[in-house]
Nucleic acid binder design. Structure first.
Lengths: 145, 145
DNA sequence: TTAATAGAAGACATTAATATCTACAATCTA
DNA sequence: TAGATTGTAGATATTAATGTCTTCTATTAA
């Protein structure tokens, strides 16, 4: 099924919890409970978000993680790129390697344009927007298959 | 990476070979050579295309497969649906199960619209178009990773 | 009717994404 | 400094997509 990876979905949910938390730092354990993401897996996700400067962390008692900048300045694009890399929207809709250089598949021009649309939308939507949406629907972001 | 499945890409390549063939039926073996898709795997793909009425087949010596209707009447959408099912474009960009009913994620409206755009494009592009493109670039559709 | 051809079917193998487990290192509080 | 807390790191496990192998059945041609 064509969508962003499940891992990215996890990250969005966890970051939303983090953004909504009154008093950071928050432990990964608490984030896992809040977001429904498996704890050990979330630890890895958190690591990536840390490496890419979206969150910061502190070890030890009273430690935890927090947003490196306000939720209004973190876009869904930032999160997607952090987890899946820069080319998270494939070069060709059909995954053809040869597509785009000397050759273009019949859907190429469309996909290039469409891909940019998707990117712009992901750039437009900020973590703060997700948080707002969630506040109106408290149980919203939890279940995921 | 977000794109249609590799399997769908395989199917498009193989069907393009089939559409370009002078005298059907064509054996799966020949299709595999022409398209670069692993033979045994192509056999499975061919089976699905058969089940969904995109191709027909005949066993035995002199048998093989052929398009069930002209290439102009087979869209990339038909092929995608045949292989990945009707919901091959996910319900939510982030794969959230809860998204779309009582709850909508912040990118939901955008994705619904965008998804339709993608579908329309896949509907617009026919197998005959792919064949034309390939004729101008003979080596185009072969390699794939 | 026999031998060759070719698709059908299902068991098995590989790979990448996802998820878990265990041990470790840093930091705080007392 | 002792002990509890919490992130870090890497090995291991599971799952779904992808790919392979073997055997069977249908069809044709001689």
């Amino acid at each position: 099924m064509m969508s962003l990876s499940q891992t990215t979905g996890h990250a969005v949910r966890a970051l939303t919890c983090l953004a909504g938390h009154a008093s950071p730092p928050v432990s990964v354990k608490d984030l896992a409970e809040c977001s429904g993401v498996p704890r050990p897996y979330l630890a890895k996700i958190v690591k990536k978000l840390n490496n890419t400067g979206i969150i910061e962390s502190k070890r030890g008692a009273g430690g935890g993680v927090w947003l490196a900048r306000p939720a209004k300045l973190i876009s869904l694009l930032d999160i997607s790129v952090a987890l899946e890399g820069d080319a998270f929207l494939g070069n060709c809709l059909f995954g053809l390697d040869s597509c785009g250089n000397e050759y273009e598949c019949p859907a190429h021009k469309f996909w290039i344009k469409n891909r940019e649309q998707i990117k712009r939308e992901l750039e437009r939507v900020k973590l703060s927007d997700v948080l707002e949406t969630q506040k109106n629907h408290p149980a919203a972001l939890h279940s995921n298959g």
